[in-house]
C-alpha cells in the first residue's frame, strides 16, 4: 500500500487579472498514497481551493496551470485532453465543495443529480443507478424514503450528507473535500466529520481534505500539509507535525484552533494578514508576521522545503533551511 495515488510536483497555478497575475499556488509539492488522507490547512486565501481545483483541472476561466505536474496513478492530469479529463473527473476523483447550501441544483431531485453522475461514467440502467443511490443514502445516514426529495427539503446537514453520497457514487479513488463543514453549524460539523471518518475507514478511500481549521485535520487525516501564501511550509505525518511542530506558522495555527468536539472558545488569533499573492513579499512569505524572523535573512532569501527525516518537511531558515 505504498504506491502513490497522487503526486503533485512543483505546481504553479496562476490567475490572470487586469493588473497582471495572482500566483495563487506557487511551487506546491506533496504526495498521497492509496487509502491515505491528507489535510491541506492554512488561512483563507492561501491557495488551498486553487490547489484542489487544479488537481481536477476545474479552474475558473482566468486561472491556468503555469507549470508543474499532477500525477494521478502516474498519469499527468495537467496535459490530459478534454474528453479524458471529463472521464477522469468524479470517476477517479470527486469533490465535495465548500458551499454546502448551494452545491445542489435546486430544481432537480437530489437522487437524480446523483444518478446523473453514475450514468455519465458507467454503463448501468437508470434503475440500477437509483438502487445504488438508495444504498448511498443509507450509507451516509439519510432515510431512503427521502429519495424523491429536492434539495430545499433537506436541512444543511442532510444536504452535505447527500453531497458526500454524490461524491462516493462512482467509487472514486480520491475524494477531495474543500472545507466540507464550514457552512454548517458546530453540532452538525462534528457529525459530518464523524461520518467522513467512518466512511474513510469503511471504504478505504483516499482523501484530500481542505480546511482552515486544523482540528478537523487532526481528527481525519494521516498527513498534514500546511500552506501559507501559495506555498507549503510544513508537511508530514499528522501526529509528527502536531507533536513536533517545526514551522512557526504551524505553531500559530495549532494555537488558533480549539478542538472541534469542545465548545468554541475565544482563541488566540494570528496577528496580521496573509500577504497579497499578486505581489508576494521577498524572502520567507511569513516574515512580516513571524516572531522569529531574522533580519537580513528571512526577508531576503526564500527558505527551501527541507526533508527533516521521517517524511517531515519544513521551509524555515531556523529549521535546517540554511543547509
Amino acid at each position: 500500500m505504498s504506491e502513490r495515488l497522487l503526486e503533485v510536483k512543483d505546481l504553479r497555478t496562476y490567475f490572470k487579472i487586469t493588473a497582471g497575475e495572482v500566483k495563487a499556488v506557487d511551487g506546491v509539492s506533496f504526495f498521497l498514497n492509496h487509502s491515505e488522507s491528507i489535510g491541506l490547512v492554512g488561512e483563507s486565501g492561501c491557495g488551498k481551493t486553487t490547489t484542489a481545483l487544479s488537481t481536477i483541472r476545474l479552474l475558473p476561466d482566468n486561472g491556468y496551470i503555469h507549470s508543474g505536474q499532477i500525477l494521478f496513478e502516474g498519469r499527468d492530469i495537467t496535459n490530459l485532453p478534454e474528453k479524458e479529463l471529463r472521464d477522469f473527473r468524479w470517476a477517479q476523483a470527486s469533490m465535495i465543495f465548500q458551499g454546502a447550501m448551494n452545491a445542489l441544483n435546486p430544481v432537480q431531485k437530489v437522487s437524480d443529480q446523483i444518478v446523473e453522475a453514475i450514468l455519465l461514467h458507467e454503463k448501468v440502467t437508470k434503475r440500477d443507478a437509483l438502487e445504488r443511490v438508495k444504498g448511498l443514502f443509507d450509507l451516509v445516514g439519510i432515510d431512503v424514503k427521502r429519495v424523491n426529495a429536492y434539495p430545499h427539503e433537506f436541512s444543511g446537514g442532510m444536504r452535505q450528507r447527500a453531497i458526500i453520497a454524490m461524491a462516493l457514487a462512482c467509487n472514486p479513488k480520491l475524494v477531495i473535500g474543500d472545507e466540507p463543514t464550514t457552512a454548517l453549524d458546530v453540532m452538525v460539523q462534528a457529525q459530518i466529520i464523524d461520518l467522513i471518518n467512518d466512511l474513510r475507514h469503511k471504504l478505504n478511500m483516499s482523501m484530500l481534505m481542505i480546511t482552515h481549521d486544523l482540528s478537523i485535520i487532526t481528527e481525519t487525516c494521516d498527513r498534514i500539509a500546511v500552506m501559507y501564501a501559495g506555498k507549503i511550509v510544513e508537511y508530514g505525518k499528522t501526529d509528527v507535525v502536531v507533536r513536533k511542530t517545526l514551522h512557526p506558522y504551524t505553531d500559530k495555527l495549532i494555537h488558533a484552533f480549539p478542538n472541534i468536539y469542545q465548545p468554541r472558545v475565544m482563541v488566540e488569533s494570528i496577528p496580521g494578514d496573509p500577504p497579497d499573492l499578486f505581489n508576494p513579499p521577498a524572502g520567507c512569505r511569513f516574515n512580516a508576521r513571524c516572531e522569529h524572523a531574522v533580519k537580513g535573512l528571512c526577508d531576503c532569501k526564500e527558505p527551501p522545503l527541507v526533508d527533516m527525516g521521517g517524511e517531515h518537511f519544513v521551509a524555515c531558515h531556523l529549521r535546517g533551511g540554511n543547509q
Binding site: S94, M95, Q98, M101, A103, L104, E116, I163, M166
Partner: peptide, 9 residues
C-alpha cells in the same frame, strides 16, 4: 456552486 459541482461530475 452547483454549476461547479456539475462540471466536476
Amino acid at each position: 456552486d452547483f454549476v461547479l459541482t456539475a462540471r466536476a461530475k
